[in-house]
Write a protein that binds this DNA or RNA. Sequence first.
RNA 1: CGGGGUAUAGCGCAGCUUGGUAGCGCGUCUGGUUCGGGACCAGAAGGUCAAGGGUUCGAAUCCCUUUACUCCGACCA
Length: 477
Amino acid sequence: MAQIKNESITPRDVDFAKWYTEICRKAELMDYTSMKGFIIYRPYGFAIWENIKKYLDEKFKETGHENVYLPMVIKESLFNKEKEHVEGFAPETLIVTIGGKDKLDDPLIVRPTSEVLFCEHYAKIINSYRDLPKLYNQWCSVVRYEKTTRPFLRGSEFLWQEGHTMHRTKEEAKEEAIKMLNIYDKLGKDVLAIPFIKGQKTEKEKFAGALETYTIEALMHDGQSLQAGTTHFFGDSFARAFDISFLDKDGTRKHPHQSSWGVSTRLIGAIIMVHGDDNGLVLPPPVAPIQVVIVPIRADIDENVRATSKTIYENLKSKGLRVKLDDDTSRSPGWKFAEYEMKGVPIRLEIGPRDLKENKLLMATRYNDEKKFISLDDIDNIPSILDDITKKMYDKAKKFLEEHIHFAKTLEQFEEMIKNGGYVAIPYCGEEACEKKMKELYQVTARAIPFDQKDEEGICPICGKKTHRIVYYARAY
RNA sequence: CGGGGUAUAGCGCAGCUUGGUAGCGCGUCUGGUUCGGGACCAGAAGGUCAAGGGUUCGAAUCCCUUUACUCCGACCA
């Protein structure tokens, strides 16, 4: 159990929301601007995003995707082509109506997502089965004019990647959506140390215009669920609306099938709320802008401390680690300890004259708040210690997740179980009316129909219909 | 978009009820002593009191409008 060392931050269990925003600011991840919902990603926060981006970009390329860049505005008449899509996004679009001094006849919508732009382009470049699949991805920002905003979780503008792909067959497009969901899941395990629930969205919760939406849901420390990423299978509805077709091998003209998928800077919010504690941020090593910080003690008077710190710094750097040597003697060690804990640096090495005489130094690990002596030779093991930290953080989060999944057969059981937060599963009849009822009764939404479920007969506790599926409900961000 | 709360120095706040010279703590800068869990002393800098309007001889303070943040709902990555 981490003892509270930093008195300047609101404890997590006292006021989770306040704790969250304090971390965002005090760990120097972001700052507000005078435009509602538009935030500044400060270097430390942006670096986390860059690390996520780097991992994903490699994975995308490994799986045959190409990066492109499309315009940030979409003219209204183009946007209006796919009915469901428009209805889904219309309430939160930001629209440019003036260019120079002239009022625009066809206003420009600042992209809330780029499906229609991709479709307009695909219509021109897809003519033959040989042109398929098209596997495009775009790194950009999108604008959704939100009514209530929170740093990283919900803003008027956020950074993301959006993959948009076109395929010859329905099966292939659907397979793509599942494949990318699995890449996100792997990102969670390898990079974010966050276990996800993988599943399908209900009719009510799926993306505007999609046939099926798949989701990764993460459980925050306060028991609420966060939709961390989604992938969509569109079928050929957009292709029909945008008149995209190709001549297949058999000589007939067909509409290609489409997928899209995205994760956003919301993942930073997930990292904060899954791993953070009362001393601040706790970063999994793969995303940490600083993985190891070296704090020399009495470096001003001790040549050995100074030289050894430098040697260790160079050594770790040569291993490809992101390491910082903080030899600023105008700050006390105590100040530095608190500072790097607030910033969630996974490993801190304290190098002082006393220990150095015995050829050892202190290693503090952030995620479990432990300090132990290691020998100078152990420095070479730090890369594997960092890997281990990622695994342990994942295991810890997974245990928390598993402890917060329950199964209810009746509404009475549901009511009792949902009080403690987390997910409560009930038999899923598929009726939207039942979902709405659940929301009215318990302020919960259907988060996912998990892929991983037993084929057991159950009865929807709302309408009484028989079913073989279950759905997870939770309060959500 | 509905209901509440907030806005005074970089951060946290007092001052407002009862209008009359802009305050405190932390941080910042300088010098010195310090340095193994947010050190100490001395000195200094830093503010159109969110913005706009009104009342008044005079407004941080009273009135109106707008904006942002925040919490609770409705809507969503």
